[in-house]
């Protein structure tokens, strides 16, 4: 299967999303055991907002990051477009 050529701009954006999501995973697990930490919740919501800004920028190069309707599709259906994460 031929792989879709990704532009250089894609790579720093994907790393940025991995970094943002790392903060979100860490805050999620922390809040699971510290549910009353207001400052952490504020940081969580700020990062969640930033994530929502970042995702469409990545999807314009890479196609949908999620499916079942969590991302819009291009035409033709571009969910199955390579490279998949382990092929990057």
């Amino acid at each position: 299967m031929s792989q879709h050529q990704l532009p250089q701009e894609f790579y720093p954006l994907m790393e940025e999303l991995q970094a943002v999501d790392f903060v979100l995973v860490e805050l999620t697990l922390y809040l699971d055991t510290h549910p009353n930490d207001t400052a952490a919740i504020q940081q969580f919501n700020e990062m969640a907002y930033y994530r929502h800004q970042l995702v469409p920028q990545i999807e314009q190069y890479y196609g949908p990051l999620q499916q079942f309707g969590n991302s819009y599709s291009g035409y033709p259906w571009n969910w199955n477009q390579s490279p998949w994460p382990w092929q990057l």
Binding site: D21, P64, L65, Q66
Partner: peptide, 12 residues
Amino acid sequence: WIYEKKLQYPVR
């Protein structure tokens, strides 16, 4: 569960 097409951390 929703799959996300991205690794949690880059693998090289």
